[in-house]
Amino acid sequence: MGAVAAGALLLTGHLGAAAGLVGLGAGMLLLDVATQSGQVANQARILALRPEARARLNTAYMTCAFLGGSAGSWLGVRAYAAFGWNGVCGLVMLLAGLALLRRALR
């Protein structure tokens, strides 16, 4: 989640000109790699729970992942309408921070 927050920070676009374009590309790459890594790690963790029930576990996991993606899209649109692009980046950083906090408190 730290890499997700770092990617969102790069996407805020405070750099400008060529550096801003490089920051945009680096932020998108970091955000994508962090998200995909989390997805793979979570699926490996879930599927190891009961190997004989992999299909059902994967169905439940992917259903929750798509519901979370839908909720994130809804929140992202609301954040953009209210606060613009920096609001969306702030929302990503806030949610990543909450996930890190939850993990730290376990």
Results as ranks from 00 to 15, higher is better:
Q36S: 13
C64H: 11
L47F: 06
V4F: 00
F66P: 01
A41G: 06
L10W: 02
I46G: 03
L10I: 08
H14P: 00
V92R: 00
G68K: 06
W85P: 01
A41D: 07
V92M: 11
A17S: 14
L98Y: 11
A26N: 03
S73T: 15
G87S: 01
A44F: 01
G72A: 13
G23L: 05
N86K: 09
L100Y: 03
E52R: 02
R78T: 15
N42M: 14
L30M: 15
F83W: 13
L49M: 15
R102E: 09
A17W: 07
L75N: 02
L21T: 10
L15H: 09
R45M: 15
N58W: 02
A65Q: 14
W85F: 05
A17T: 08
V77P: 00
A5K: 04
R102Q: 10
L91T: 01
G16D: 09
G13R: 01
D32T: 15
L10D: 02
T35A: 15
L101P: 02
G84D: 10
S73M: 13
V92W: 02
D32R: 14
G13E: 08
W74F: 14
L31V: 01
A81I: 05
L105I: 08
A104E: 07
P51T: 04
A6F: 05
L49F: 07
M62Q: 12
H14F: 10
L100H: 04
A82K: 06
L100K: 06
A55L: 06
A5F: 00
R45I: 01
C89S: 05
E52K: 04
A5Y: 00
N86P: 07
G69E: 06
N86C: 08
M93G: 09
L15V: 14
L95H: 06
L98N: 04
W74V: 06
V77Y: 03
A55G: 06
L30A: 06
M1P: 13
G16Q: 09
G90Q: 08
R50T: 10
H14Q: 10
L98G: 08
A48Q: 05
L31M: 08
H14Y: 10
R50S: 12
N42K: 01
G23E: 01
Q43K: 05
R50K: 14
G16Y: 08
C89I: 03
L24D: 01
R56S: 14
Q36N: 09
R54Y: 01
A99W: 08
